[in-house]
């Protein structure tokens, strides 16, 4: 199995090759190109959104509640007269932040644990393995609910809970990826040239297991957003009036039957679009890093 870093003699050539491959994947798969554009749009909204929106996302207006979409309010107004469009756009940053932090924490801790387990085997492997099995034995959403309920519903706790339920994916993946390379030729070579274990693990083996993890990260990002939304629906999510997609859908869901569909639909679409983007991007990344497709 060839990998990103192991195959290029010159790093520059490697980068160039990677870019060429990126371009190939993009043109070859319109869905990935589409997802990549959506991704840029979402990141853009997260970065500059708060300065672009027409209304203060928190300002209530008792005079114009539950207005359907119009030129003044593109996505209508909610039960307190707040502009749904502004809230949807401003929410991007928080949702992205939750997802990115949760996945980052899960990735760092999970892959470290997994890499150590995979490299040393034995008790380290058994203990982390059993711990991860224990986490996996819970229905994951329920575990997240339990953690947030126990620790209190703050943004940090939502992030921690989401990180914990994502841990096993990275730990298992890192363990497998590291274990298969533990005795690979280049590792033996590094060992013979007197490198310490941790150096080999950190600089030789681990970078090689990154590509498949990137795919996992992208898929988990979408999942993390959904998870936060689900928590909000139960009442364990972000605290209002902070705009957040999940809580907006959850609140708006109560207004569907009464015909105020725009309350749930637009944040729902934004939520779906974001999750959709990350999922497609994950698939695209898989193509990107899949050596079989690179020839």
């Amino acid at each position: 199995m060839t990998t990103l870093t192991a195959d290029g003699a010159s790093p520059l050539a490697g980068v160039r090759r990677f870019l060429r491959h990126l371009l190939y994947v993009m043109t070859d798969n319109p869905m990935t190109a589409f997802a990549f554009m959506l991704f840029l749009l979402i990141v853009g909204a997260a970065l500059v959104g708060p300065w672009l929106v027409p209304y203060d996302p928190l300002a209530t207006n008792a005079g114009s509640t539950l207005q359907p979409p119009s030129w003044q309010h593109w996505f209508g107004t909610d039960q307190l007269g707040r502009d749904v469009f502004s809230r949807v756009v401003v929410a991007t940053r928080l949702d992205l932040m939750i997802a990115v932090s949760a996945v980052a924490i899960a990735f760092v801790i999970g892959s470290t644990l997994g890499a150590i387990a995979g490299f040393y085997g034995g008790w380290a492997e058994r203990i982390t393995g059993r711990c991860m099995d224990t986490i996996m034995a819970f229905p994951l959403f329920v575990l997240a609910m339990g953690i947030v309920a126990a620790a209190g519903n703050t943004v940090e706790n939502i992030i921690y809970a989401t990180a914990i339920i994502n841990l096993p994916f990275y730990a298992r993946m890192a363990r497998t990826e590291v274990a298969v390379r533990r005795n690979a030729g280049f590792v033996q070579a590094a060992r013979l040239s007197g490198n310490a274990d941790w150096r080999i693990l950190a600089f030789q083996i681990f970078p090689n297991s990154l590509p498949p993890m990137m795919v996992q990260i992208s898929l988990n990002m979408g999942w993390a957003i959904l998870n936060a939304a689900g928590l909000s629906f139960i009442g364990l999510g972000v605290i209002p009036p902070t705009p957040e997609w999940g809580i907006m859908v959850a609140e708006g869901a109560n207004y569907i039957i009464s015909g105020h569909w725009w309350l749930a639909l637009f944040p729902g679409l934004a939520l779906m679009l974001a999750v959709f983007t990350f999922n497609l991007l994950g698939d695209g990344l898989r193509d990107l890093v899949d050596p079989q497709r690179r020839t």
């Binding site: 928190l58 300002a59 209530t60 008792a62 307190l80 519903n153 009442g235 605290i239 209002p240 009036p241």
Partner: peptide, 18 residues
Amino acid sequence: LLIQESLGQIGITVTLDR
């Protein structure tokens, strides 16, 4: 939410606690 907004106008900063 409505009280939070109103008290903000007389200098009382309110955070919501559910």
